[in-house]
């Protein structure tokens, strides 16, 4: 029964809250859909935090989604040992990079007084949940090999069963506790989406692709450092 609450009720509640409150926030407080960049307040550490974090986490999330959407294709991709090893090592490196990135972002917010000042409680919560989640992901990938393979036969059937409203939790309740924690934290992050600056994940500026051209004219070439 406890597992049912964790792996059925909680994911549904998290998704519904995220969608409904996400729309509500968009309708009532549209300009809060932003990452609230603190780039102007601190720029040097931000680079080493933000760039590794975003490139790492986007690529890793992409593999999670690809394996979820095309399990057979994914299975065929991994059927060669060399491809499996290359993918796993790349994934591990990217995971470690996200851990380093988010850790630096947290340290930056602690150490720079200006950035600390504009950091809300919700921000701290989000940052620590994200750190925990990617650290867990890295650890799972390292210790419970080969996650890229068994993910398709454990978490994916569970997620698909949730999607078609026919929950099958036996696929995940047999997994190690750390893996279960990783799955649940994923939905905690979904739940945090409408309450935090995480909403910026749906604001990728793709309108750049079709907005009118802007002509930018410099009066003078920027002078390079000698």
């Amino acid at each position: 029964m406890f597992n049912t609450v964790l792996f059925v009720v909680f994911p549904y509640v998290a998704v519904i809250v995220a969608v409904v409150l996400g729309i509500h926030r968009y309708r009532t407080n549209r300009f809060s859909y932003s990452s609230l960049s603190s780039q102007f307040l601190e720029n040097r550490t931000l680079f080493w935090g933000s760039v590794p974090w975003h490139y790492g986490v986007i690529l890793i999330l992409l593999t999670h989604f690809l394996a979820f959407l095309f399990p057979t294709l994914w299975g065929n991709l991994l059927s060669d040992r060399i491809r499996l090893y290359v993918l796993e090592v790349t994934g591990l490196a990217l995971a470690l990079m996200t851990v380093i990135g988010i850790a630096l972002l947290i340290l930056r917010r602690l150490r720079s007084p200006r950035v600390f000042h504009v950091t809300s409680n919700a921000d701290w919560l989000l940052l620590f949940v994200l750190l925990l989640q990617v650290a867990l992901g890295f650890w799972i990938a390292l210790v419970y090999r080969w996650g890229s393979g068994w993910y398709v036969h454990t978490a994916v059937p569970w997620l698909r069963s949730l999607l078609v409203l026919d929950p099958q939790i036996q696929h995940v309740t047999v997994l190690p506790v750390l893996v279960q924690l990783h799955l649940l934290l994923g939905f905690v992050i979904v739940l945090l989406f409408p309450f935090t600056r995480l909403v910026h994940v749906v604001t990728y500026p793709i309108t750049y692709l079709w907005r009118p051209l802007q002509v930018v004219i410099w009066n003078r070439r920027p002078v390079r450092k000698s």
Binding site: N43, R44, F47, W48, V51, P52, Y55, E88, V89, T90, L92, A93, L94, A95, L96, M97, I100, L142, R145, W218, P222, R224, K225
Partner: peptide, 28 residues
């Protein structure tokens, strides 16, 4: 071995980031 490979991978990726954005601090 895996942890070592991952560490080497991160070092390479960070180096790549530094190379791509080496002029980032030279702003207008």
């Amino acid at each position: 071995l895996l942890a070592l490979l991952a560490t080497v991978g991160v070092a390479l990726l960070l180096l790549l980031a530094q190379l791509i954005w080496r002029r980032r601090l030279v702003s207008v």
